[in-house]
Design a protein around this nucleic acid. Structure first.
Lengths: 239, 239
DNA sequence: TAAAGACATAATTTATAAATTTTGCGATCC
DNA sequence: GGATCGCAAAATTTATAAATTATGTCTTTA
């Protein structure tokens, strides 16, 4: 049921609060905890089998990351989604990752290029969907996809910027997880990744940036369409 | 400016944890709590007159912002400073604020221009130092300075980016607070601000970005020199 | 001198208490 | 008759206090 057994097994000097923080984060980003949902301590206590102090600490950390909204004296809520935020996140990601990619290319060395090629290769081999008929999210592909994009910007030599990009990727990942994306087959994501790698190896910063940004914009477009049809796409409470 | 201000507008029933969070943040950014210092609960409890639960929550929030380092099972520490971090923060700020400024100018409307002029005017009138002989930090000037730079990028239409810039400004502010900057007189900061405003009103994005970035780099250069002479400039613990 | 055990210190978690907000019911006023 | 305001009960969040667990150090012993 829960993951505690694995943690206790090996290499985990982590505190309970940290462990819960990570589990909560995963559950929010995967939308298992729906956007807008109220996070009541009692519910969380039995769900995560913990006291309120570690839970409270985890929630406070997530608040700073804008994944949880803490209304004073009124408890915590999963950050709602909105088309507006989707747009802002996408736009911002295009800007800053474009920046970071340009720097990475400027600082490129063989080790980085090789790491990129390996990451791309692994991603290319992994199946996009667990089920070839209808889409079924493949956690392994998601992991490799995230790693691929992380490596692209890993050479920018700015930890603050890398951290910010990670945060944007996480927050956007929630929208991706939410989208049922029936259109997953029509798009050739794999080709887009290959094109980016090619541009990088050609040291063509401008082209690489352009391709990366279009990659993100197209993803957002699909999610947006999906969200607009299936449901409200806006979980902001009326208050 | 930030969300707290809005809350205070219509009477915020702020929780103790939030209040302590803000006080702790101020004390860390102003370097009243020195970089690298160990933050023991017992000390904080009597210093801030609070229980450990709200303190713990405040510390956990600050951890996510990288102002406090939480070593698992070993307590909390004020984030150490280092010349390396100073460099990374400055570089990153130049990049992202350059970006944000370019967008702000692209979206410029009369209201924004007027707000900028007002902010600049106020900053220009405030004395840089409380004491005309030797430097003595003027909180009012610091506040207006922060507001001026915030307005510059306020039109970029990306709340995530604005938030990130704020964080970078905060973290760099600590280095400024730490620097004794005896050289405050030799530099004509006021002129630099005026030049930036002029470029903005001329709609000269490239020039405005260049000036803003040089503004930050020069500031960093002074701080770096100051830190290298006065003390170690690196509070990273040996462990 | 090195290792092992016990003591002391400090952090983490659970449990209890206090304060605040929400909810439901009833009375009064329009 | 319908609606609004106010008071009281319930639920939930926040804060304090107690207990548990872990870590570091010092002493003792081999």
């Amino acid at each position: 049921m829960n993951v505690d057994a694995q943690n206790k097994g090996l290499e985990s000097p982590a505190t309970l609060a940290t462990s819960i923080y990570e589990r909560l984060k995963v559950d929010i980003l995967s939308a298992r905890l729906e956007p807008g949902r109220k996070l009541q301590l009692r519910f969380l206590m039995e769900q995560y089998e913990a006291g309120q102090t570690p839970l409270r600490e985890a929630l406070n950390r997530l608040t700073t990351e804008d994944l949880v909204i803490g209304k004073e004296q009124r408890g915590f809520f999963v950050k709602p989604i909105s088309l507006e935020e989707l747009g802002e996140l996408t736009k911002t990601r295009c800007w800053v990752e474009g920046l970071a990619l340009r720097e990475s290319i400027a600082n490129a060395d063989p080790a980085w290029e090789e790491a990129l090629i390996v990451a791309h290769h692994r991603l290319d081999r992994a199946p996009r969907s667990l089920n070839p008929e209808r889409f079924e999210s493949n956690p392994e592909w998601e992991r490799l996809h995230k790693a691929f994009h992380a490596i692209l910007i890993s050479g920018c030599q700015s930890r603050p910027l890398i951290g910010f990009c990670e945060q944007l990727a996480d927050r956007l990942g929630r929208y991706r997880a939410l989208s049922s994306r029936k259109a997953f087959r029509v798009r050739k994501v794999s080709q887009e990744h290959a094109d980016i790698v090619k541009a990088v190896l050609d040291r063509d910063s401008e082209e690489a940036m352009r391709l990366l940004q279009r990659h993100y914009e197209q993803t957002a477009e699909i999610i947006r369409a999906d969200l607009e049809t299936t449901e409200a796409g806006d979980t902001t409470p009326p208050a």
